[in-house]
Amino acid sequence: MGHGGDVIQELTTDHREVEEIFAQMEALPMGNSRRKYLADQATIELVRHSVAEEMHLYPAVRHYVRDGDAIADREVQDHAEAEQTMKDLEGLGADDPRFDELVGRLMREIREHVTDEEQNLFPLLREATKPEELEQLGEKVRSAKKTAPTRPHPAAPDKPPLNKLLAPGAGLVDRIRDAVTGRGRTR
């Protein structure tokens, strides 16, 4: 499954890519420096994914899905918890005693969130939305991920319109920082 298609296909592909990063991390011994690189890769992908969901998916859930506000609020709360975990993890090396604890927490948070989205939210959205609307949302999500931040910003707004206004600027700053520091480059 590659990127493209409707919003559900796009986000499910993201889920599989992050799970692959997690599997690579789990295959390495604790303290291995490559685990830090992989944690950074997971963070980059998760932040971009979360921002795109908050910009486009959750407003659609609020609009189309019965009890959509409650569902979207729960998903945004899940994001906030994971984002704080990523922020706590950000400055730690793989040899830090807290690193593996935080990586384990992040994996649990994300796996629970993914299961909930794929088993509950996505079927509800597919049932409540026309295929062409899902396709349009897929395009919007792909576009948002291109300019989204790559680092966690727990204090940033997570609801429209402020998130749509501020995310591209934060994304630009993050990508500049990543380029200067080498964060996220293939090793």
Results as ranks from 00 to 15, higher is better:
Asp78Met: 13
Tyr64Asp: 09
Ala128Lys: 02
Glu117Gly: 07
Glu26Asn: 06
Ala155Trp: 04
Pro154Asn: 04
Ala52Asp: 00
Glu17Leu: 14
Glu118Pro: 03
Asp95Lys: 06
Gly31Ala: 02
Ala179Lys: 06
Val173Ser: 04
Glu132Phe: 13
Asp40Ser: 06
Leu134Tyr: 03
Ala27Pro: 05
Lys164Leu: 15
Val173Pro: 03
Met86Thr: 00
Thr85Gln: 09
Leu121Ile: 12
Asp178Lys: 01
Phe122Pro: 00
Ala94Gly: 05
Ile44Thr: 01
Val47Ile: 12
Thr147Ala: 15
Leu106Met: 08
Arg185Gln: 15
Val173Asn: 01
Ala80Cys: 09
Arg175Gly: 13
Asp178Thr: 07
Ile176Ser: 01
Ala167Met: 03
Glu109Lys: 09
Thr115Arg: 12
Ala167Pro: 01
Thr186Ile: 15
Asp96Tyr: 04
Thr181Glu: 11
Asn32His: 15
Gln136Lys: 11
Pro168Asp: 05
Val18Cys: 06
Ile21Cys: 02
Ala167Asn: 04
Glu118Phe: 11
Pro152Phe: 10
Leu106Cys: 01
Leu121Ala: 09
Glu118Arg: 02
Asp69Trp: 07
Asp174Gln: 05
Arg142Glu: 07
Gly171Leu: 04
Gln119Cys: 12
Arg66Asn: 10
Arg34Trp: 08
Glu109Ser: 14
Lys87Ala: 15
Gln77Tyr: 13
Leu57Met: 09
His15Met: 15
Leu46Val: 07
Gly169Trp: 15
Glu26Gly: 14
Pro157Tyr: 06
Glu17Met: 15
Pro131Ala: 14
Ala52Arg: 01
Tyr64Glu: 08
Glu17Arg: 08
Gln77Asn: 13
Val141Pro: 02
Leu46Asn: 00
Leu92Asn: 02
Asp158Glu: 12
Arg66Met: 15
His15Ile: 13
Leu134Trp: 04
Asp78Pro: 03
Val76Gln: 05
Asp6Pro: 00
Val180Pro: 00
Asp67Asn: 07
Leu125Met: 04
Arg177Ala: 15
His15Glu: 13
Ala155Leu: 08
Val7Gln: 03
Asp78Ile: 10
Leu134Ile: 02
Gly171Arg: 01
Pro152Met: 12
Met1Asp: 06
Leu92Gln: 01
His63Val: 10
Glu109Leu: 13
Ile110Thr: 09
His56Tyr: 14
Lys87Gly: 09
Ala23Gly: 12
Glu132Lys: 05
Leu102Met: 08
Glu118Cys: 11
Glu109Ala: 11
Asp158Ala: 11
Glu127Tyr: 06
Met107Gln: 13
Leu28Asn: 03
Met107Gly: 10
Ala70Phe: 05
Pro59Gly: 11
Asp14Tyr: 01
Pro97Glu: 12
Ala42Trp: 00
Glu45Ala: 09
Gln41Pro: 10
Val61Trp: 00
Val7Tyr: 00
Phe99Ser: 08
Ala155Val: 09
Arg183Gly: 08
Leu166Met: 13
Glu90Thr: 10
Arg34Asn: 10
Leu165Gln: 05
Ala128Thr: 02
Ser50Met: 11
Pro168Met: 05
Ala70Trp: 06
Ala167Glu: 01
Thr13Asn: 06
Pro168Gly: 05
Lys164Met: 14
Val7Cys: 05
Lys87Phe: 10
Glu139Gly: 15
Val65Arg: 00
Ser143Gly: 08
Lys145Leu: 13
Pro59Lys: 04
His113Leu: 06
Glu53Gln: 04
Met25Glu: 05
Gly4Ala: 12
